[in-house]
Design a protein around this nucleic acid. Structure first.
Length: 828
RNA sequence: GCCGGAGUGGCGGAGUUGGUAGACGCAGGGGACUUAAAAUCCCCUUGAGCUUGCUCAGCGCGGGUUCGAAUCCCGCCUCCGGUACCA
C-alpha cells in the first residue's frame, strides 16, 4: 500500500473487483438472510436520505454475508407516479424518458457509494414486465371479491375540471390554477382491505421486531372499536330510519338530538319543504369548507336543522335531526346520536344551538350533576341515572345490557367497527398501471366493467403525444388517447371502451419484495418455491413516513398472496427499521428552498465513499434524524486516514500470519484491547447501534496509534490487530478495509474471509470499577478484580479513604450492591 | 384536531433491564515537531464557586415514586412524521 490514503484511487478498484467476483449474488445454499430497503421513487437526484436508507441495509448485508449467511440484497425502482407526470405537464417531456434518465443517474450514484446490490435482480415498476402482474392481481382479486366499485369523496378542481391530489390543494385552492377546490363524490375502484382489518390487527402481536411506534400507529389506524348500532325511526316517515354507531350506548337515555353528515344518503327523506333549500345550501357550503380546511385546524362546528325528528328506541320521545360538519358520511354510519351531558363535542354544539342537555351518568357514589349548571361534559364512565330499567348499572354493564336489549327489539345491537376504510386505488392519471377493464354497452349495460382476460395482459400504457394528453385538465389522460380507449369487448367482440383510470402507485410497492426473488418470471408474479425459502424479508429498512399506509397495504397484499398460494408467509417482514431524516447542516430539512441540499456525488468525490458512509452511520442511531455536517465528515475522513497510516506504519509486521500465543505485557494488552473491541463491535452491530460500534473502533485506533511494537510477539499482535480492524470496519468502510486486508496478506475479499470470532479469554474484563455512593450521592470509586464477591467489594468500599469519612459516626441502614457497577450505603 | 415520536455540554451524540450523566466525534484552548505553515502527535474542555481538590447545580418545563430517575408515573411546552389521490 502507498503512504497516503487516496480514496478516489482505491474505491473504484474494489467496486470493480466485487462485481467481477459476483460477491453479492445469492448462493442458493446455507441459511438465508433477506435484507431490503424501501425502493426509491427515482426523482431528479439522489439525496442524503437515500444514502442513509440504503447504507443501513448495506452495512447489515455486508455484515451478515461475512457471517456466512446467504444474503439477498436487491434494488429496484418505484418508477410510476405523480411527480413525473406533473413535471411532464410543465415541460412536455415524456415521463418514461425522464424516469429512464433519473434511474440511470441514481444507479451510477449508488454504485459510487459502494452498495453491495445484486443488480441482476433490478426491477422497475414502469416496465410492462412488472405492471402486468399488478393487472393480474387485480383480476384475481376481483374474482375473490376483493375489488369493487364505490363512490368516494375526492378533491375536484373547479378550474382544471379534474380530480387533484390532497398535496395539490393549497388552502382550498388548486396549486396549479388557483381555482377553488370542492369535495365531490366520484365513482372509484377499491380494494376490500377492511375484510382483513381484524387479522391485520391481530398479527401485530407477532411483529415483535417492529418498532412499537409503528405497530402502535397501525393499531390506531385500524381503530377497532366495540359499540352498538342504534336504529332511530324517523317520525312520520314509515320505513325511513337512521342508524347511528356509538361506543357509549350507556348514554342512550341522554340523547337530545341526532346528527347526520351534510351529504348523508337519506337526506332527501329527512328534509321538509321548508328546510330543503337551506340544507342543500348548507351541504354545498360544507363541501367547500371541507376542501379548504387546513389540516391542523379544527373547523368551527356548524349545524343546520333538517326538519326531521328521530324516535328514541326506548322512550319513544322525538328528538330533532341536525346536519353538521363534524359528522362525515364515509366513517361509521354517517350519523351519530348526541348526548351533550356526556360528550364534549356534543356539549359545545348543544350550547351553541340551544339544544337540551340531560344528565344520565353520575360519578360513582355521587349525586348526578345538574345539567343546567354544567360548564363542560362529563365524559367518564359512571353509574346510570334517569335511564329506566338500566338506572343504577355501571357504564360498562349498561353498554352490554342496552346493546342486548336493542337487538331484542330489532333496533340495532352490539357491533364491532373499524376506523380503517377500504383502499380506493383508481387515479385519473397517465403514469400508472392501466386498470384492465373494458366497458361494453351491450354486454355490460350498467357499466360495472368487464375484466380483460388474463391472456390479453398486459394492457400496455400507450405511447402518447405528451403536450396533448398530459394537460392536467379535464378527463383522465388515457381518455384522450383514442387508440387506447377504443377496443373490442372480450365477450361479444363488439366495440368497447377501456377503463381510462390507472392504479395508485401504492399497488406497485405492495408486492415488489416478492418479485426480486424471480424478477423475470413470465408465468407468475412470484416463484412460490423460491418464496418458500427466501421469505419473509428478514430486515426491511425505510422511512417512518411509511409506517402506516404502505406497510398496511404491504401486509394486506401478503395475506392475499398467501391465500393464493404464492407465498407461504402471512407477514412479509420480520424486523423493521425506520430510519430518521438527514437534515441540512442548518438542521432544517434538506430542500432547494433552503439551499441546504448536500449531494452524495459531491461528497463521494471530495471525501470518498468510505468517509461519507462512516459519517452517515456515525452521526446517530438509525431511527433518529441527523444533521449533515461537513466538519464531521472531515473528521471521519481523518479517522480513516489514521487507520491507513497505522496500517502503513506497521506493514512489515504483516509477515506474521498469526499471533505467537502466550503473550505477556504489551503484546497481551494489544490483543486484549483488540478482542474486547471486536466483541463490543459485534454486539453493537447486532443491536443496530452502528454509531457506537464506530466509536469503539475509534477508541481502538487511538490506542493503537500510541503503540510502538518491539519484538516479534508485539509485531505479531499488531498484525492481528490490523487484520481484525479491517474486518471490523468493513461493513461501514469496505473499500479501505479491503485495501488493508490485502496489504496484510489476504488473497480473498473480506466478504469471503468471514466475520472474525473474538477470543473470549482475551475479551474478558480483568477488573471492575465500582461507583461508591453514600445516600445516593457519588463519593468515590474503587477498582477491584472482576471476580470479587459482594462482601469483599463492600468491605473494600467501606475501607476506601474517600468513603470512610462519610460513614464515620453514622448508622448503616442499608447496603445496595449492583454487581460490576455500584455500591450505595444508606446511612443516618 | 386526531394518532405516533423526539427533546442530554458551544454542536452531533453516548448512557442494553432505574445504578458513576457527557463515551466517541466536531468546534475551541494549550503544548510538541517545523525556519514557518499545513499535516501529524500529546494534553485540556458541562456550568458555577472557591482553598485545584473538592462542593453545589445540571438531561425541554413543573410535580411525584425510589436508597438511587435522562430512564418509571402525572401535568405542561416546543419540534418532527402520518392523517387515506406525494411516495
Amino acid at each position: 500500500m502507498r503512504e497516503t490514503y487516496i480514496p478516489q484511487e482505491i474505491e473504484p478498484k474494489w467496486q470493480d473487483r466485487w462485481e467481477r467476483e459476483n460477491l453479492f449474488k445469492l448462493r442458493g445454499n446455507g441459511e438465508k438472510k433477506y435484507i431490503l430497503e424501501m425502493f426509491p421513487y427515482p426523482s431528479g437526484k439522489m439525496h442524503m436520505g437515500h444514502v442513509r436508507n440504503y447504507l443501513i441495509g448495506d452495512v447489515l448485508a455486508r455484515y451478515y454475508r461475512a457471517r456466512g449467511f446467504d444474503v439477498l440484497h436487491p434494488m429496484g425502482w418505484d418508477a410510476l407516479g405523480l411527480p413525473a407526470e406533473n413535471a411532464a405537464i410543465k415541460d412536455g417531456r415524456h415521463p418514461a424518458e425522464r424516469t429512464r434518465e433519473n434511474v440511470a443517474a441514481f444507479k451510477a450514484e449508488m454504485k459510487s457509494v459502494g452498495y453491495s446490490y445484486d443488480w441482476e435482480r433490478e426491477i422497475a415498476t414502469c416496465d410492462p414486465e412488472y405492471y402486468r402482474w399488478n393487472q393480474w392481481f387485480f383480476l384475481k382479486m376481483r374474482e375473490k371479491g376483493l375489488v369493487y366499485r364505490r363512490q368516494n369523496r375526492v378533491n375536484w378542481c373547479t378550474g382544471c375540471k379534474t380530480v387533484i391530489a390532497n398535496e395539490q390543494v393549497k388552502e382550498g385552492l388548486c396549486e396549479r390554477c388557483e381555482s377553488p377546490v370542492e369535495k365531490r363524490l366520484m365513482p372509484e375502484w377499491a380494494f376490500r382491505i377492511t375484510k382483513y382489518s381484524q387479522r391485520l390487527l391481530d398479527n401485530l402481536d407477532q411483529l415483535t421486531e417492529w418498532p412499537d411506534r409503528v405497530t402502535s400507529m397501525q393499531r390506531h389506524w385500524i381503530g377497532r372499536s366495540t359499540g352498538a348500532e342504534i336504529v332511530f325511526e324517523i317520525d312520520g316517515k314509515p320505513g325511513v330510519s337512521l342508524t347511528v354507531f356509538t361506543t357509549r350506548a350507556d348514554t342512550l337515555f341522554g340523547v337530545s338530538y341526532v346528527v347526520v353528515a351534510p351529504d348523508h344518503p337519506l337526506m332527501a327523506h329527512l328534509v321538509t319543504d321548508e328546510t330543503r333549500e337551506k340544507i342543500a345550501a348548507f351541504a354545498d357550503e360544507m363541501a367547500k369548507q371541507a376542501a379548504a380546511q387546513k389540516k391542523d385546524e379544527e373547523p368551527e362546528k356548524l349545524g343546520c336543522f333538517t326538519g326531521a325528528y328521530a324516535v328514541h328506541p326506548f322512550t319513544g320521545k322525538k328528538v330533532p335531526v341536525w346536519a353538521a360538519n363534524f359528522v362525515v358520511s364515509d366513517y361509521g354510519t354517517g350519523a351519530v346520536m348526541s348526548v351533550p351531558a356526556h360528550d364534549q363535542r356534543d356539549f359545545e354544539f348543544a350550547k351553541k344551538y340551544g339544544l337540551p342537555i340531560h344528565t344520565v351518568i353520575a360519578e360513582a357514589g355521587q349525586a348526578p350533576r345538574d345539567a343546567a349548571a354544567l360548564t363542560e361534559a362529563f365524559a367518564d364512565d359512571g353509574v346510570l341515572v334517569n335511564s329506566e330499567a338500566f338506572t343504577g348499572m355501571t357504564s360498562a354493564d349498561a353498554r352490554e345490557a342496552i346493546a342486548k336489549a336493542l337487538a331484542e327489539k330489532g333496533k340495532g345491537g352490539p357491533v364491532v367497527t373499524f376506523r380503517q376504510r377500504d383502499w380506493g386505488f383508481s387515479r385519473q392519471r397517465y403514469w400508472g398501471t392501466p386498470i384492465p377493464v373494458v366497458y361494453c354497452d351491450k354486454c355490460d349495460p350498467n357499466h360495472e366493467g368487464i375484466s380483460v382476460p388474463e391472456s390479453q395482459l398486459p394492457v400496455m400504457l400507450p405511447k402518447i403525444d405528451v403536450t396533448k394528453v398530459l394537460t392536467g385538465r379535464g378527463e383522465p389522460p388515457l381518455a384522450k388517447v383514442p387508440e387506447f380507449l377504443h377496443t373490442t369487448c372480450p365477450l361479444c367482440g363488439g366495440p368497447a371502451r377501456r377503463e381510462a383510470e390507472t392504479m395508485d402507485t401504492f399497488v406497485d410497492s405492495t408486492w415488489y419484495y416478492a418479485r426480486y426473488l424471480s424478477p423475470h418470471l413470465t408465468t407468475a408474479p412470484v416463484d412460490a418455491e423460491t418464496a418458500k425459502r427466501m421469505l419473509p424479508v428478514d430486515i426491511y429498512v425505510g422511512g417512518p413516513e411509511h409506517a402506516v399506509m404502505h406497510l398496511l397495504y404491504f401486509r394486506f397484499w401478503t395475506m392475499v398472496m398467501k391465500e393464493m398460494g404464492l407465498v407461504s408467509v402471512e407477514e412479509p417482514v420480520k424486523r423493521l427499521i425506520t430510519q430518521g431524516i438527514v437534515n441540512g447542516p442548518d438542521g432544517r430539512k434538506m430542500s432547494k428552498r433552503w439551499g441546504n441540499v448536500v449531494s452524495p456525488r459531491d461528497i463521494v468525490s471530495k471525501y470518498g465513499a468510505d468517509a461519507a458512509r462512516t459519517f452517515v452511520m456515525f452521526a446517530g442511531p438509525p431511527e433518529k434524524d441527523i444533521d449533515w455536517s461537513d466538519a464531521q465528515v472531515e473528521g471521519c475522513a481523518r479517522f480513516l486516514s489514521r487507520i491507513w497510516r497505522l496500517a502503513f506504519t506497521h506493514q512489515k509486521s504483516a509477515r506474521f500470519a498469526a499471533p505467537l500465543g502466550n503473550e505477556a505485557g504489551k503484546a497481551l494488552e494489544i490483543r486484549r484491547r483488540v478482542h474486547q473491541t471486536l466483541k463490543t463491535v459485534t454486539e453493537d452491530i447486532e443491536r443496530l447501534s452502528f454509531n457506537t460500534s464506530i466509536a469503539r473502533i475509534m477508541e481502538l485506533v487511538n490506542f493503537l496509534t500510541g503503540v510502538k511494537p518491539a519484538g516479534d510477539a508485539e509485531e505479531a499482535a499488531m498484525a492481528e490487530a490490523m487484520r481484525l480492524l479491517a474486518a471490523m470496519i468493513s461493513p461501514v468502510a469496505p473499500h479501505i478495509a479491503e485495501e488493508i486486508s490485502e496489504a496484510y496478506g489476504a488473497a480473498d475479499c473480506l466478504q469471503i474471509q468471514g466475520w472474525p470470532a473474538f477470543d473470549p479469554a482475551l475479551a474478558a474484563k480483568q477488573s471492575a470499577k465500582y461507583a461508591v455512593q453514600v445516600n445516593g450521592k457519588l463519593r468515590g470509586e474503587i477498582e477491584v478484580p472482576a471476580d470479587m464477591g459482594k462482601d469483599d467489594v463492600l468491605a473494600a468500599a467501606k475501607a476506601d479513604a474517600k468513603i470512610a469519612p462519610h460513614l464515620a459516626g453514622k448508622t448503616l441502614k442499608k447496603e445496595i450492591f449492583v454487581p460490576g457497577r455500584l455500591v450505595n450505603f444508606v446511612a443516618v
